[in-house]
């Protein structure tokens, strides 16, 4: 199925949870947040939240800034 991940089109398997997507993308940062369709999905839900076709996903972190 198709998703938008950090503003880039991606194809991923059906029924993928956020946790599986993070593993698939080898996200190792300790400090990050996941937003889907402009809603923050808490870490506690990453194992159960199933990504749907067309979801707009943002994986966000902290960087240097003033």
């Amino acid at each position: 199925m198709n998703i938008l991940l950090n503003n880039k089109k991606e194809k991923i398997s059906e029924g993928m949870t956020i946790e599986k997507l993070l593993n698939y993308k080898e996200i190792k940062n300790k400090y990050f947040a996941v937003e889907i369709n402009e809603q923050v999905i808490p870490k506690s839900d990453h194992g159960s939240y199933i990504i749907k076709n067309g979801d707009k996903i943002e994986i966000i972190t902290a960087i240097g800034g003033g």
Binding site: N6, E26, K28, A62, G64
Partner: peptide
């Protein structure tokens, strides 16, 4: 700090 999209394709060993 600023809040930005993670660079997902970056070298996995690189620090944050």
């Amino acid at each position: 700090v600023a809040i930005r999209r993670m660079n997902i394709g970056q070298d996995k060993a690189s620090k944050n």
